[in-house]
């Protein structure tokens, strides 16, 4: 059963046609990597899925609910779609614990004690159980990103969108973050990642979607697609990144 469904989605920035009729069907538990050159529309696509960007034609639904960028709709959507950003976007004035507890307390109306239990559990999960009281600025980039993951998980999302979440990290910190994602994938979390980590896409991902010039140029089983690309564009892209 499909969890995220895109049907002929078109998006324009003014005259610029960013997404040119995207069809995509993501099943629950699937790990989908979206790859492609910068400017191919992959981040925009991700941001359309949770309503951060408007689209002009077509339809997107998550868990059988239609996605529009209207505020109230986005908020309802936030309950099923989590998102992690390239720049972490932690709240710098709050401690790690408070960062995670904020949305569960004020959006889900959980009690403080309950939110705290969840926050601690999520921090344990990402391997940062001892950082509950620290401020984000005291953490490394990799740790901050793992806190961001914990913050998203605390809302118990059905699908997690990851927008180049390792691109701003020092190379030696990338592994820790990917390990967390791998663990989540094993637990059955649905992941949609815009990523440049081809090894991760191949080894952990189920499916790869290659975007080119605003279209889904090629997609399929990740191992097969990355080792045996059909189109010239994907061959070139793989040659350039590997």
């Amino acid at each position: 059963m499909s969890l995220v469904k895109l049907d002929q989605v078109h998006k324009y920035y003014g005259d610029f046609h960013v997404l040119k009729g995207i069809d995509l069907d993501i099943k629950a538990g699937e790990v989908v990597s979206i790859i492609g050159k910068s400017g191919s529309g992959k981040s925009t696509l991700l941001r359309c899925i949770n309503g951060l960007e408007e689209y002009q034609q077509g339809g997107i639904s998550v868990d059988d609910k239609e996605v529009t960028s209207e505020d109230i709709q986005v908020r309802r959507l936030a309950l099923s779609v989590g998102m992690i950003f390239q720049n972490f976007n932690l709240f710098p004035h709050l401690t790690v614990g408070e960062n995670i507890m904020l949305a569960p307390t004020i959006v889900l109306k959980k009690s403080k004690a309950e939110a705290q239990t969840i926050a601690k559990a999520m921090l344990e999960k990402v391997g940062l159980g001892d950082k509950f009281g620290s401020y984000p600025e005291k953490l490394s980039g990799g740790q901050q990103q793992r806190v961001a993951i914990a913050r998203a998980l605390a809302m118990n999302p059905k699908v997690l969108l990851c927008d180049e979440i390792t691109s701003a990290l020092d190379p030696e910190l990338v592994g820790d973050v990917l390990k967390v994602l791998e663990q989540l994938a094993k637990e059955g979390m649905t992941l949609v990642l815009v990523t440049h980590e081809m090894n991760f896409a191949r080894d952990v991902g189920d499916r790869v979607v290659f975007m080119h010039q605003g279209k889904v140029w090629e997609e399929g089983n990740s191992k097969k697609l990355l080792s045996d690309p059909e189109t010239e564009e994907l061959k070139q892209f793989i040659g350039a990144v590997l």
Partner: peptide
């Protein structure tokens, strides 16, 4: 990003 992070966590304006 502060606005966006809040928005995707479901916080109202």
């Amino acid at each position: 990003g502060q606005w966006e992070a809040s928005r995707v966590l479901g916080l109202s304006f």
